[in-house]
Amino acid sequence: MSTAIEAAVETTPRPPGGGRARRPVRRQSLLEVLLPTGFMVLAALYFLLPLWWLVVASSRERTGSSGTGLWFDGPFRLFRNISDVLAHNDGIFVRWLANSFAYATFGALVGTLFASMAGYALAKYVFPGREAVFNIILAGVLVPATALALPLFLLASLVDATDSMWAVLLPSTVSPFGVYLCRIYAAAAVPDELLEAARLDGASEFRAFFTVSIRLMAPALVTVFLFQFVVVWNNFLLPLVMLQDNRLYPVTLGLATWNSQVTRVADIQLYVIVGALLSILPLVIAFLALQRFWRTGLSEGAVK
């Protein structure tokens, strides 16, 4: 199934007689099909083999001790290894996964709500300083991570708030990109007539937003949520700077810590490999399930 072709066909105006789009149909030669497809198969190997290797390596008895190829050799120990990892150190790994979920879900939910409200206000109302506010928000993107993480740490230590979940949760709720996307989307998707009608029915501005507008903005909200979720899930520097207590670590920081113990703790290398596999599975699955939303959102951001 080629979505590219579908999309092209869909946007072609249909001829008056109905039926298929007026695309010049020509028989494609075998070579014309094999060449690009073969090229893409090679590329797919490059992108997917490391993930496959991760599965194979996670199934070995001990890392390096029983072959290094790309196929299972020796006893298949994947599930045994997984339960070992989950049990290691009083189940700290499960905590890390849960923390990552908590940080990413909270940051993405609250971030999307705040960004949608701000983007909507910037799109649908005229007020003094509107463009200035918008431009300052956008400039936020150019700020390097350390420029934020370090002063945040210093400020948090002034109020004794480091080494707590809040020190990571709260800064994760800011999504300037979300404001941008919501503004563009609300401007195009929420008709003024509809808002006028809601007002005539006596709805307040907030009621109009939460009952009417937010539904029309749903595709943009899904995209903002996904983007922010990935950003927070990938975050490494902020927790690295803020957190000392390893029970508060997200899974990225936790695995990096395990990896730094390779010389001291037996078997930890295998645990890092299995842990890496476990930590990316949920995200890969979420991506596969939600990928059509990504396309919508990306084209909103880049093309419009």
Binding site: I5, A43, V230, L288
Partner: peptide, 18 residues
């Protein structure tokens, strides 16, 4: 128009971003 399995390749190439 010559590629077969475009949606598979799109997903496969994007997967590492996860």
């Amino acid at each position: 128009p010559f590629l077969r399995g475009a949606s598979f390749f799109r997903l496969a190439f994007f997967a590492p971003y996860a």
